[in-house]
Design a protein around this nucleic acid. Structure first.
Length: 434
DNA sequence: TCTGGGGTCCTAGGACCC
DNA sequence: TCTGGGGTCCTAGGACCC
């Protein structure tokens, strides 16, 4: 049996954990650059505010109902997530951290709870509520896809108080009937439309199609697997997340600008800064990169015709994780695509073709590859920035020039209560200060 | 005025090989 | 008039996820 533990309205709930006055109020959290709405409280959802809505569009209705909006505070959400996952690791035999706010648990062999896994789910829910102060829902079933589905059912209903265990065929059948095919894990917009065209609208109907049909109409093996999972036959294994950070196969840092950039120099600064951030992520997972892409995007929503994005990809002569080297390559790529007079709204640096650092295939014709000295320099850079704060030491190219500002808006950010000494949670009592 | 960011997996089709 | 039959590898792009 698998469980899916999912924090409700995660970003909003993190903000509420430190600001109880937000309980019962419409609350939203915004994406980078205060652009879109990416998390909504139940009250905000009830106002008809949809996921991904531009903030400026939702703002009137939010203001009208005395709602609150916050810039995203990733330091806070990341730390709250670590606390949740830490708790789960203590109470479950195997945990797969699936995203910042959800995790799969493998419940195989939990004899002491057999017959009452729902009680186990409730214990987890209460534990997270007590220790991390976050609301969760727990879905339990024989496959990951059904656990997801159970979780979806409890999120929508008040009857189950956030925990549902599908431990009989009747329970499964009932749950499948509650869920639209479009809401099944792995069914996106395209597939949902295709299903609809074939008269399949509920998860129960989807669970009844033949394997051949699924292969043909739902994207080959993925579709066949999905249907089997709905039928209760586990095809997806749990991949336990150990203490090590997950190994990414690609690493990117991309951002929209507060105001569009046209001139080369500030764009170079931004791209260098993005390459710096991506290189830090790269070294954190002990990888080196072979393929580097830089892209620039113009305003997607303006009148200009597509394409809005141009990119350049370089195959590096040897894998590296050296920030200085990567900034040089990023500059080369940028020069290829930058066009004078264009106003760019967004840029990004993407690393692909990752391999373990130190195991690089050396280039036969060039004496390249990182020297031990450069590796030590990068390690020291990371150490200083970890100890004294991000951006303490860096490369001049990656600094904004005089009067330049490429960072996005973040006007409504709350303090990093749990990860920054300067922003620690303060409690005021009787006008005094604790 | 204002519209996010970072991933994964799979498939189709082209290039190339014998 | 007519134009083989398998393979492998790589890449671009689609679809999906949170």
């Amino acid at each position: 049996m698998f469980a899916l533990v999912d924090c409700n309205n995660f970003y909003v709930s993190c903000e509420r954990a430190f600001q109880p006055r937000l309980e019962g109020k419409p609350v939203v959290v915004l994406s980078n650059n205060d652009g879109c709405i990416v998390s909504r409280s139940a009250e905000a959802k009830a106002l008809g505010i949809r996921m991904g809505t531009p903030y400026f569009q939702a703002r009137p209705v939010l203001d009208q109902h005395q709602g609150y909006a916050f810039s995203s505070n990733y330091a806070l959400y990341g730390d709250m997530s670590r606390r949740v996952m830490g708790y789960l690791a203590e109470v479950a035999p195997e945990v797969e951290v699936y995203s910042v706010d959800e995790a799969f648990l493998n419940l195989t062999g939990m004899e002491q709870w057999q017959g009452d896994l729902e009680a186990y789910g409730r214990r987890i829910q209460a534990g997270i509520r007590q220790y991390v102060h976050l609301p969760t829902c727990v879905g339990i079933a024989s496959t990951k896809t059904l656990a997801k589905l159970a979780n979806h059912v409890v999120k929508k209903s008040t009857a189950h108080h956030g925990v549902l265990c599908l431990d009989s065929p009747e329970q499964c059948r009932w749950a499948l009937e509650q869920v639209a095919a479009a809401d099944v894990w792995g069914i996106g917009r395209q597939q949902a439309a295709r299903l609809q065209a074939h008269g399949i609208t509920t998860a129960a109907e989807l669970a009844e199609v033949s394997e051949a049909w699924a292969r043909r109409h739902l994207g080959g093996v993925v579709g066949a697997r999905l249907v089997r999972e709905l039928q209760g036959q586990a095809c997806l294994e749990l991949t336990p997340s150990d203490d090590a950070l997950p190994q990414r196969h690609s690493i990117a840092h991309t951002r929209s600008f507060g105001t569009p950039l046209t001139a080369y120099q500030p764009l170079l600064g931004a791209v260098a800064a993005f390459a710096t951030r991506a290189a830090e992520k790269l070294r954190r997972q002990n990888s080196a990169v072979n393929i580097l892409t830089v892209f620039l995007s113009k305003n997607r929503h303006g009148s200009a015709p597509a394409p809005h994005t141009t990119s350049a990809t370089l195959n590096l002569p040897a894998a590296t994780s050296d920030t200085a080297e990567l900034i040089r390559y990023a500059r080369t790529a940028l020069k290829r695509i930058w066009q004078p007079g264009s106003a760019y709204k967004k840029a990004g640096v993407v690393f692909a073709g990752l391999e373990t650092a130190g195991a690089q295939q050396l280039n036969l014709f060039e004496a390249s590859g990182q020297t031990a000295q450069r590796v030590r320099l990068m390690a020291e850079l990371d150490r200083l920035n970890a100890h004294y704060g991000a951006g303490t030491v860096g490369f001049a190219t990656a600094l904004p020039g005089k009067g330049e500002n490429w960072s996005g808006k973040k006007d409504l950010r709350t303090p990093a209560y749990t990860t920054c000494f300067k922003e620690l949670w303060c409690i005021h009592m009787d006008g005094g200060f604790l």
